[in-house]
Every structure is written in structure tokens, then in C-alpha cells.
């Protein structure tokens, strides 16, 4: 039975190896913060971190996940849900319906991890693959700048 390390915990799943990681995370392990939007890599709703990299979990097969891989979902981004991106998101009330937001936050957090001072252009480039049908886009850009600031204050 494949074993996964997610948010610092070990999980087992009986899903077949060709299952998209997304569905294993959501439905087998019930970490439902990670969302299904398109299943084709077009929307970013399903974004998680694998070894710190933002990855579209709908495009990764369970069998292709390295047994040592460190997977982080929105639930594990910060032990008290107070990652600078999350705090900035609340401060600027980014979410509307909220459905795309776990993916947006994971994508944004991955940017700040490698680039603590992104320019607006860098933000746009990095976030352009994440769709938001409610179009919360401009608040996201503001909030990412704010998160960069919060990360420094911490």
C-alpha cells in the first residue's frame, strides 16, 4: 500500500497507482482544502507543494510520487494557519467564493519561499496559471506584496 508523507504525517492509501494525487489527498485522506477545478493542469485549484515546489496535484499520478517526497497541502502550510500569505489574505479579504484560494495561496507561498521581494511583474508571471472565476486578481497581487512585508517583520 503506497505511503505518503503529507504535512508531516504518514498516510496510507489503497488507491491504484494511476490515481491522480489530487483525488488521493482529497477523497482518501480527506484533506479537502485542496480543490478540483479542471483535472488538466489549466486552473491551479489543486496546487500543493512537493519538496517545496508548487505542483498541480491533478497531473501527478500516485505511483509517480517518490516515497521520500515531502508533500504540503493548505492544511499544513502553517501550524496555526498564520503563514504570512494567509495573514495577508485575511487582511485584504482576498477570497470571494474562495474555491480557488487554497491553490492561489499555495502558489503564492511557493513564490515567496524563493523570492522574498517579488516585483509585480514577477507576481503576475508566477500566478498567471491560477484561474479565479470571481476575479479576485488585483487583491491577490496587493496581498502578496503585503505578505512579503509580513514575512520580514516576523
Amino acid at each position: 500500500m503506497p505511503q505518503l508523507s503529507i504535512n508531516g504525517q504518514s498516510y496510507f492509501t489503497d488507491s491504484p497507482p494511476d490515481s491522480p494525487l489530487l483525488w488521493v489527498i482529497r477523497e482518501d485522506l480527506r484533506l479537502t482544502g485542496t480543490k478540483f477545478g479542471c483535472g488538466g493542469g489549466y486552473c491551479g485549484s489543486c496546487t500543493v507543494h512537493i519538496n517545496g515546489q508548487p505542483v498541480r496535484s491533478c497531473m501527478v499520478k500516485l505511483g509517480d510520487v517518490d516515497s521520500n517526497a515531502v508533500i504540503t497541502t493548505i492544511e499544513g502550510l502553517d501550524p496555526s494557519d498564520a503563514h504570512p500569505v494567509q495573514r495577508a489574505w485575511i487582511e485584504h479579504e482576498v477570497p470571494q467564493c474562495g474555491y480557488c484560494q487554497s491553490g492561489q495561496i499555495m502558489q503564492a507561498a511557493a513564490l515567496l519561499a524563493v523570492n522574498p521581494n517579488p516585483t509585480t511583474d514577477e507576481i503576475v508571471q508566477h500566478m498567471n496559471g491560477n484561474l479565479c472565476r470571481c476575479a479576485t486578481y488585483s487583491r491577490m497581487v496587493t496581498a502578496i506584496h503585503r505578505a512579503a512585508q509580513l514575512a520580514k517583520e516576523a
Binding site: 482544502g33 497541502t73 489574505w89 485575511i90 477570497p95 474562495g98 484560494q101 495561496i105
Partner: peptide
């Protein structure tokens, strides 16, 4: 409704 939309809850 906003905070729960930032942490997967």
C-alpha cells in the same frame, strides 16, 4: 466567511 477560506477549512 473569509478566514476559513484561507486555511482549507
Amino acid at each position: 466567511d473569509v478566514p476559513a477560506k484561507t486555511n482549507g477549512k
